[in-house]
């Protein structure tokens, strides 16, 4: 067993858990098995259509000792709050720093596995892993207009996603990442550039996400590419 949604009795213990667990960790994990620098031409989705090139912002501290409070309303409030300038409008650059409650840096990475392992991203950079909000942005290049596509998301824990500035889908609750967990309503990918933005909130435990587009038949869309510019 592992307590992710911590019971009340364990609550006080958890207050020291993140730091204690991290303090026990002999060395941070290596990024290499999970991320590589995002360089070169725009990246095609993997064989299953998962998008693997992302700008990831170092985590915003948002204490939550349990994920059980990730109700619809809480998640919407937490993930639509403005934490830094340009949060919902700007396309950041690799290495750019934003100023919120604390300076946070954007990192451009290609995910090695199908999913984006946010916990490892944070841990490897020596950043907080529990009680955090992650922000992610990628640019989807579509060779033509594609109607009636769906954004298929799995996230650990809750998340919200916006396509070209419009909310696409929200995943609330204490979720584990399951591919194609929640699908958006039918969307249109514009010909050319489409900005896909996401935010993932997590209390204790691992955090990650996986994202792909599916066509009307539920098949992954692979004739697109993603980049960070």
């Amino acid at each position: 067993m592992m307590t992710k949604a911590l019971p009340v009795a364990a609550g006080m213990a958890w207050l020291a858990l993140a730091s204690a667990a991290d303090a026990d960790t002999p060395a941070p994990p290596s990024l290499a098995p999970y991320f590589q620098p995002a360089i070169g031409a725009a990246k095609a989705p993997d064989a299953d259509g998962f998008l693997q090139r992302w700008l990831l912002l170092e985590p915003i501290v948002k204490p939550n000792r349990s994920n059980s409070g990730f109700t619809n309303s809480y998640v919407r409030t937490a993930l639509t709050t403005h934490y830094f300038p340009g949060q919902f409008t700007a396309l950041p650059k690799d290495g750019e720093t934003v100023k919120g409650a604390a300076p946070l840096r954007w990192h451009a990475f290609d995910a090695v596995p199908f999913d984006v392992t946010l916990f490892t991203f944070a841990a490897a950079l020596g950043k907080p892993t529990y009680g955090v909000i992650f922000n992610a942005v990628t640019v989807v290049h579509s060779p033509r207009e594609m109607k009636n596509v769906r954004l298929a998301v799995g996230s650990n824990a809750a998340s919200m996603w916006w396509l070209n500035g419009k909310e696409a889908v929200m995943l609330s609750g204490d979720r584990r990442m399951v591919m194609d967990d929640v699908l958006s309503p039918r969307l249109t990918l514009a010909k050319g550039r489409n900005v896909l933005r996401g935010a993932v909130i997590n209390g204790p435990g691992l955090s990650d996400f996986c994202v792909r587009f599916l066509d009307e038949d539920g098949k992954p869309i692979r004739d697109i590419s993603v980049d960070v510019k």
Partner: peptide, 12 residues
């Protein structure tokens, strides 16, 4: 087992 444990009737 999927879901959350150790939280009584709020365990999934």
């Amino acid at each position: 087992t999927h879901g959350t444990c150790c939280d009584g009737p709020n365990s999934s």
